[in-house]
């Protein structure tokens, strides 16, 4: 599943320098790829009882990854690829998410969901910030679309979190 084209240079270092749409998209793709690979590696380590959660996260991150690949190949986006974009304050937190955490040998469902929620929140903030700082046009639409995607996923995870953690609900 690993699609590591970044060599030994850390994702974080690369992210701190980005300022064009191309770099932003690379950063976002990297964000999704690391998440996908992280969950894929985590899946066999967790109890089968909660593996469904991790498997679902792998699928979701793969979908996001595919989305960014498609975006990069979109002619309309490609036309804007060199456009300069102001790096938002949320960028630091977003890029931090590329540093993968140690969730322990056998993390429980709540720990996994909390981590996933944190990632989605960071992504949502990042794309919202980018959309806010980008003038009206196709580029802004791209970021707005991405922010919506991440928001939807975060909302879905929150619902799962409630159903898992409050199961029993007594």
């Amino acid at each position: 599943m690993t699609d590591n084209t970044e060599g030994h240079i850390s994702g974080k270092d690369k992210l701190e320098a980005c300022s064009t749409l191309k770099e932003i998209l690379q950063q976002a793709t990297e964000f999704e790829r690391t998440a996908r690979d992280f969950y894929a590696e985590l899946a066999p380590k967790v109890s089968k009882k909660i593996r469904y959660l991790v498997d679902e996260l792998v699928i979701e991150e793969q979908n996001h990854y595919d989305l960014f690949i498609d975006l990069a190949n979109d002619p309309e986006v490609a036309a804007q690829i060199k456009q300069e974009i102001i790096t938002p304050p949320s960028n630091k937190r977003f890029s931090d998410c590329i540093q993968l955490p140690d969730l322990g040998d056998n993390p429980d469902d709540q720990t996994i969901l909390q981590y996933a929620l944190g990632r989605e929140q960071a992504a949502m903030d990042q794309y919202n910030s980018l959309a806010d700082s980008t003038p009206e046009g196709p580029l802004k639409d791209v970021f707005t679309f991405l922010a919506q995607e991440e928001t939807e996923h975060k909302n879905e995870l929150e619902k799962i979190y409630y159903e898992v953690v409050h199961s029993g609900g007594v």
Partner: peptide, 15 residues
């Protein structure tokens, strides 16, 4: 806020 079942008694193999 809620409860869960500790199924560790099953062991890894049966799980």
């Amino acid at each position: 806020i809620g409860q869960f079942s500790d199924t560790s008694l099953l062991g890894e193999e049966l799980t």
